[in-house]
Design a protein around this nucleic acid. Structure first.
Lengths: 209, 209
DNA sequence: TGGCAGAACTTACTCCCAGTAAGTTACTCG
DNA sequence: CGAGTAACTTACTGGGAGTAAGTTCTGCCA
């Protein structure tokens, strides 16, 4: 079927692996975001790209693997947004506030992203659970770093305590993000950030004792 | 095959609805706890009770419904444990500490329960999501009540702020519970409670301003 | 130019599991 | 006893995850 004169292409062409992987990942992110984890089938994703299911399996291994790849990329973007906001702030107190605002704003502006993050709990079981934890761990580490910055340098840190605090803050912000989207008249990112700030700032003081 | 002299019974007998429902619920709770949501099939549950699958569907409607019923009962037990601890405490500060300790201790002592609670995120989609939120809402309300007790009675409460704080605390404790079980050498309930106490107590002060 | 190695891709399945239609058996009350 | 109803079953459908085995394209070297 190699047409001689017809410039009108053989529409579907083979592409190299990296390009296909990206194409599949983009489609998966969109569809997971629209229909959720349960509502999305691997056939849907394959069809959206115009490719067969086994190819998707070849590249991403399993449905969990596919989802995890989306999650991982979205988390990285979210982490960047928050880290940028923190780094741009003039002092730790404002950095904390800016970080919270960036978090909630990002989720506002990327509704598909939150949808995927909300479904993160879907990976509660299996080996994917551990992988999902590792993806989240970067965030917890960022928070832990922020916390350490607020402790006097000479004071011996209680690492365990710092981990507890970081996990708590991470859990609190995730729950707020979910709560927010499930209720109509929810507070603005600024209001949420202000409240968290008030709640936590003094509390962090107490840890220095 | 109705044997004449054999006292060895027709082992399986019909039971009235309430009894069967309880029996099924108990089995479901156990199996969900052992294998997780994904790893459990409705046939497994039916087989464990020695009953056919449609009966389970007749009583609980769907797999989500079945899971939700387990979740709901476990949450109620957890809520009781925490509420009891809070009520037994002599003052708000100790009540808060006692509540945290009770939370983590309960999850320690009921490994099946945590397993189900961890999988709560599984219900991220569908109508079950809202039902799951409602189950959790009782907890958030308990926390909100605790928070209000710490605000001066004459001061006009910012209800929105209270909700934010309550959601945060609920999210933090859930995340800590999950984190705890996924890591070997985790802190004791007392250590966790102490840290949360230090972190939040001063913060709640700040809300009074 | 031919032909070959390997990568990209497909067809055509299997198996498992949620959910259901339609019927059967046991209990209860007149 | 018989009629009505509640408890329960058999036997199925449909859909989606995952796979075995093959087919076609493409770049490369003689």
């Amino acid at each position: 079927m190699t047409s001689t004169t017809d410039g009108a292409v053989p529409v579907k062409r083979r592409r190299d692996r990296a390009a296909r992987e990206r194409e599949i990942l983009d489609a998966a992110e969109r569809i997971f975001g629209e229909r959720g984890y349960q509502g999305t089938s691997m056939d849907d994703i394959a069809a959206a790209v115009g490719v067969s299911k086994p190819l998707v399996y070849q590249y991403y291994g399993s449905k969990d693997g596919m989802f995890l790849a989306c999650l991982s990329r979205l988390r990285a973007q979210l982490l960047d947004a928050v880290a940028d906001a923190i780094l741009a702030a003039p002092d730790p107190e404002q950095a904390m506030y800016a970080g919270f605002v960036a978090w909630f704003t990002f989720l506002d502006e990327h509704p598909r992203a939150w949808s995927v993050l909300v479904d993160e709990g879907m990976l509660a079981a299996g080996p994917a659970a551990q992988a999902a934890d590792e993806v989240r761990a970067e965030f917890v580490e960022l928070i832990a770093t922020m916390v350490r910055l607020n402790l006097p340098a000479d004071h011996p840190h209680d690492e365990e305590e710092i981990q507890i605090v970081a996990q708590s803050i991470s859990g609190a912000t995730e729950r707020l993000a979910i709560w927010r989207t499930r209720n109509a008249g929810t507070p603005s990112p600024q209001k949420l950030a202000t409240t968290l700030q008030k709640l936590l700032w003094n509390g962090l003081d107490a840890l220095r004792g």
